[in-house]
Design a binder for these strands. Structure first.
Ligand SMILES: Nc1ncnc2c1ncn2[C@@H]1O[C@H](COP(=O)(O)OP(=O)(O)OP(=O)(O)O)[C@@H](O)[C@H]1O
Length: 748
DNA sequence: ATTCATGACGTTTTT
DNA sequence: CGTCATGAAT
């Protein structure tokens, strides 16, 4: 690893070779970049890798380079391909580049690997001759699992023994390593059920193909395959893209790496930026060796290192370096900063997870009140999504500050939204069996399981799609009269919707679907879900207005499929909650990391510490998001599956020098304190009751907060009666004022 | 066909 | 502990 960059050009004299450009470039680039950055921005005539630590200005290099190419070098935007890993990063880059070249931004191909590949396949998938057409849909993991479930059932494989999810993730692992379809020898030695898996995988491929559907990994794999098989297509894209820019190069997996290599090695100038210390996606196939081997893979390339950190205070920088230095693997970087030390790192050892959440919220509140920060300056980072709920609840109890959970399970994952998406999918791709199966009886229209079973059987027997089978029902007689009628009505409805969807926007189609299917009636009194539907129609509307590409359902559905990192526009002035993973590439004035416990960060299951270095990198990523202040919190106790469990601080926490830490004062809320700690000044929030009588006195009180399954969180206005049958009047943000039986409410 | 009851299972991380 | 899925009962 020491000789990593032997073929790379030395970078000691950055300006020597570029003097001409330097003097010709507008002062803008000179003023906003340091010499090393400037060199990377202007470098032409070969590939370049910017290899540098967190906060050193890599992303700035990327955006400046695009601006430079277009504005100074006169490169047509259409010759530029810029790839990121997340939609958020893509959007960010679009915004920043847009400031430099407002009118030319749309000519650039800028997006995630997946969206770029999808775009390529939309144009050229038919040239693969696999039977796919450019109307293909993208199956999400749920769709994939459902397909496999059906297949395994048909194979008479007990799903307890070989669950569909296992096969699904096995498929994924093969695909991202570009080893699909696997041969027997591709499986690990001693792996169970190889035969069944192979058979299921074969059927899976066939099923997706006949549904004209691709899974996530197909998007990448099939582009690679296309480039390998069809030189004309490859040459077309090679001729087009003269400049390829890749963000977060350390997180590329094999297929992505091959994509870049095939497309750019011999005909484009590749500019990649990355940091091996921030590689946190090994579990989904990212290979650090891609960035470490850049100089070897792309001969004649230049390596630029950036060693100045512009983001964080010296304290934060020192602390994060102290942590990452414990990794044996990884290239040491000598980061420096001109900033002074700033505040020490705030530490809070919490009684439990509730107390931890309370601390965070109260600290944010006081920092906002003392005037130096506003809510939008804060981010709270955690290892697992499950932490977000606790924090949200704490925010709700505290008036005045709102928060938004970034990413997580997106809006589009809700059942009602997925139903509507399935309808849309069906309208432009009637072969989409997964979609049909989802909505054929939702809302219920008298097509029962038995009927679906028969249709499905008939379809696979005749090698046709389920929708086609439905169309043939009148000519065959495998269904009872009642079912024939119900199925016929369904077919007619889809046909009508399909006709009216032609040439109109996604929103209009969606409205028609909701109306014709009677979906609102089906939801009955579930106001929350109805609101979701409205919101969904709204977002379709926005999509149509935005006018990126054709405003039709197909494009809308595609955008959704590629946007799992829910498009939470982060413009609002609210506190952001997200996972450590989701925080990569972002920065915030104040960062809280919660759950800094051993076995949480690093997350360890079954005492398996194999991934300790990746976990340390993850923690490093989190720490280095902070500009001004960093807080680390860990509870010493938690409830886990109902059990109380004691916890200790993370080993990473112990790697931070004590002199950089400052332990914060915070008085836990009454209910978390031991009885030996009487409290003089705080009234208990709820009257403490003996455990035995808990059922009767549930402790609801006006002013307290509760959660309801349908309406979400709300504030208690009035309590009448006692016990489970008490009538509680609650004010919900969305649903308004409601009187609800106590047994339907959970106290927050 | 809808409703209720029981049980399995779960907390990585995401395109 | 709480949620979700499956299965029996009406
Ligand atoms: N030459 C510079 N002068 C002043 N500030 C800079 C300079 N370059 C970058 N910055 C600022 O430093 C911060 C970090 O930059 P950037 O996000 O580009 O770093 P990065 O290397 O991509 O970080 P990471 O890898 O942690 O995501 C940003 O706030 C950016 O505006």
């Amino acid at each position: 690893m020491k000789n990593l960059f032997r073929t790379g050009t030395k970078t000691e004299n950055p300006q020597m070779s570029e003097n001409k450009t330097l003097s010709a470039a507008p002062s803008f680039f000179v003023e906003n970049l340091n010499p090393e950055q400037f060199e990377a921005v202007c470098h032409t005539g070969g590939h370049i890798l910017v290899f540098a630590g967190a906060g050193s200005g890599k992303t700035r290099v990327l955006t400046s380079r695009i601006a430079f190419l277009i504005n100074e070098k006169g490169v047509p935007p259409s010759e530029i391909l810029a790839v990121t890993f997340t939609n958020k990063a893509a959007r960010e880059m679009k915004n920043r580049v847009g400031e430099f070249v407002p009118d030319k931004i749309s000519g650039i191909w800028l997006g995630t690997f997946h969206s770029i590949c999808s775009r390529i396949l939309r144009n050229d998938i038919e040239k693969l001759d696999l039977g796919y057409t450019n109307d293909f849909v993208i199956y999400d993991t749920g769709d994939q699992t459902n397909v496999l479930k059906k297949i395994l059932a048909e194979m008479n494989v007990n799903e307890k023994i070989l669950p569909p999810g296992v096969v699904r993730s096995r498929i994924e692992r093969f695909k991202r390593d570009n080893k699909f379809p696997p041969s027997q020898s591709s499986f690990s030695p001693g792996e169970k059920y190889v035969f069944e898996k192979m058979q299921a995988m074969e059927k899976y491929s066939a099923a997706l193909k006949s549904a004209n559907a691709l899974d996530f990994n197909d998007l990448l794999c099939l582009v690679d395959r296309l480039f390998e098989k069809n030189k004309d297509v490859l040459e077309k894209y090679r001729a087009r893209f003269k400049h390829i820019l890749v963000d977060e190069y350390q997180d590329t997996n094999r297929v992505q790496y091959q994509f870049i290599k095939m497309l750019g090695r011999n005909n484009a100038e590749i500019c990649a930026v990355g940091d091996d210390s921030q590689s946190i996606y090994g579990w989904r196939g990212a290979e650090i060796k891609n960035i470490l081997g850049f100089a070897d893979d792309f001969p004649g390339s230049k390596i630029v290192r950036l060693e100045k950190n512009y983001r964080s205070t010296a304290t934060i920088l020192d602390a994060s370096n102290a942590v990452i230095d414990n990794n044996v693997h990884g290239v040491k970087k000598n980061m420096r900063t001109d900033r002074d030390s700033g505040e020490p790192i705030g530490i809070y050892e919490a009684r439990n997870e509730f107390d931890e959440a309370d601390f965070v919220v109260s600290k944010i509140k006081s920092l906002v009140e003392t005037g130096n920060f506003s809510p939008g300056d804060f981010a709270i980072l955690y290892r697992t999504n499950s932490k977000s709920r606790l924090l949200e609840d704490s925010f709700l109890r505290e008036d005045g500050i709102s928060c938004v959970v970034v990413g997580a399970l997106s809006f589009y994952n809700r059942a009602e939204i997925k139903d509507l998406i399935s309808y849309m999918r069906l309208l432009f791709n009637s072969a989409d069996d997964a979609a049909v199966l989802r909505i054929i009886n939702t809302p219920s229209r008298g097509i029962g399981d038995a009927t679906v079973e028969k249709l499905s059987e008939f379809a696979s027997l005749n090698g046709i799609s389920i929708m086609e089978a439905i169309h043939r029902v009148p000519q065959e007689d495998f269904l009872k009269k009642r079912a024939v009628e119900a199925v016929g009505k369904f077919a007619l409805m889809i046909e009508n919707l399909s006709q009216s969807a032609k040439g109109v926007g996604a929103a209009e189609t969606l409205k028609a679907i909701v109306e014709k299917t009677g979906y609102r009636g089906f939801l009955e009194k579930d106001e929350n879900k109805k609101e979701n539907i409205d919101e969904f129609i709204n977002s379709a509307h926005e999509f149509d207005e935005r006018g990126e590409g054709e405003a039709d359902s197909r494009n809308f559905v595609e955008q959704i499929a590629l946007t799992s990192d829910s498009d939470t526009e982060t413009g609002d002035d609210t506190v952001k909650l997200m996972t450590l993973h989701a925080s990569k590439g972002l920065e915030f004035p104040v960062v809280f990391i919660v759950g800094v416990n051993e076995k949480v960060i690093p997350l360890v299951r079954d005492n398996n510490y194999d991934e300790i270095e990746e976990e340390r990198r993850l923690f490093y990523v989190g720490m280095t998001r902070a500009k001004e202040r960093l807080f680390l919190c860990y509870p010493i106790q938690r409830k886990f599956y109902g059990r109380e469990e004691t916890m200790i601080s993370s080993q990473f926490f112990d790697e931070i020098p004590e002199e950089l830490k400052k332990y914060e004062d915070f008085k836990p809320a009454f209910r978390y304190r031991a009885e030996t700690e009487p409290d003089e000044d705080t009234q208990p929030l709820f009257t403490p009751v003996p455990k035995s009588s808990l059922k009767i006195a549930r402790g609801f009180a006006a002013g307290g907060f509760v959660r309801h399954d349908k309406f979400g969180r709300g504030k208690v206005v009035k309590v009448e009666g006692t016990g489970d049958n008490a009538d509680i009047t609650v004010l919900f943000p969305s649903a308004g004022r409601k009187r609800i039986l106590a047994s339907f409410l959970k106290k927050l």
